[in-house]
Nucleic acid binder design. Structure first.
Length: 300
DNA sequence: CAGGTATCCTGTCCGC
DNA sequence: TGCGGACAGGATACCT
């Protein structure tokens, strides 16, 4: 489900429910969540993640986010980091028994709201930390700058190596928060072919791409995220950022800008869509030169 | 090093 | 209507 905009929408919609509330763990499901790698912990019966790690009895101070990671920070420092993976949801309310993994009561002065972590595919996960500072250290080690405030200078550092620009955008260590949808959308807006090697990107490409990433992600947050299937704000309301999509999911259809059929291929293991006319593989300057030497005939 | 592939899962959709 | 296969917003380990 989620890339940065969807996580941010969940964070904002959950804030009024969780901030200042006292959490009580009221349900732990039978399944372990994915628990690979160092420092990861797991919920589920028989798992090594206890109620204390799940913030039982904690007074919630705030919700933080970096890239696609969401942190629930308690007043005593305990922090639960939530990764939604492909199909994870945080819901203000209950959900079907089959995909419910953890449920809390968020108790406020006069109200009590149920909060549920649901994840059909179980690619998501939870990890427990003793302090938010420890989480930040971990994020600093494993994540690049948050994509919402990436600038050209930091993007230039992220777009290193001989790999394709799309592969670099998907690499969370380079920039945090861009996934398959918004990588393609950002590249379309910036007019860059996703297969372009990072080393061949020029300064004006990087400036255009940094601006496109911020614009596309920021716009998607304002639209409530892309609801293709699962994504919902905590209160259950869907987003409509999918209505802004120019290339994602539009393979074979005419480009909304120029009418050229959108092409697709497999890149960095993901389905990739782009407009071959709006996103030339040859750099703009070289293309214009070639164009001039041919006496003005635009050819592919 | 970069890219491909397999893997973890369930749900959905499409063609036969 | 049923069934197999492909595919899905993510991340990672392993191989080439």
């Amino acid at each position: 489900m989620p890339e940065l905009p969807e996580i941010e929408v969940v964070r904002r919609s959950l804030q009024p429910v969780l901030e200042g509330a006292l959490l009580r763990v009221v349900h732990v499901g039978p399944h372990d969540m994915r628990a690979r790698g160092k420092g990861r912990t797991s919920a589920g019966r028989g798992a090594w993640m206890g109620r204390r790690e799940l913030l039982d009895g904690a007074r919630i101070d705030r919700l933080e986010r970096r890239g696609k990671q969401l942190a629930i920070v308690a007043g005593d420092g305990r922090t639960l980091v939530v990764q939604l993976g492909m199909s994870g949801q945080l819901i203000a309310g209950d959900c079907d028994r089959t995909h419910r993994h953890v449920a809390w009561h968020a108790e406020r002065e006069r109200s009590r709201t149920r909060v549920t972590f649901r994840d059909p595919r179980r690619f998501g996960g939870l990890s427990a930390w003793a302090s938010f500072e420890a989480v930040v250290r971990s994020w600093d080690d494993t994540l690049g700058p948050d994509a919402l405030d990436v600038d050209a200078a930091r993007l230039r550092l992220a777009l290193s190596g001989r790999r394709s620009v799309k592969a670099a955008l998907l690499d969370q260590r380079a920039i945090a928060g861009v996934g398959n949808i918004y990588a393609d959308e950002s590249l379309h807006r910036a007019g860059i072919d996703p297969r372009m090697r990072c080393t061949r990107l020029r300064e004006d490409d990087v400036i255009a791409l940094a601006s496109a990433v911020r614009h596309v992600l920021g716009g998607a947050v304002r639209r409530g995220g892309s609801t293709l299937r699962d994504h919902r704000a905590a209160d259950g309301s869907p987003g409509d950022a999918q209505q802004d999509h120019q290339v994602y999911g539009r393979g074979g259809l005419p480009c909304l800008r120029c009418g050229t059929p959108i092409r697709t291929c497999r890149l960095a293991g993901r389905t990739t869509a782009w407009c071959p006319a709006c996103q030339p593989l040859v750099h703009r300057a070289r293309r214009e030169k070639a164009h001039a030497s041919r006496g003005g005939t635009v050819r592919r």
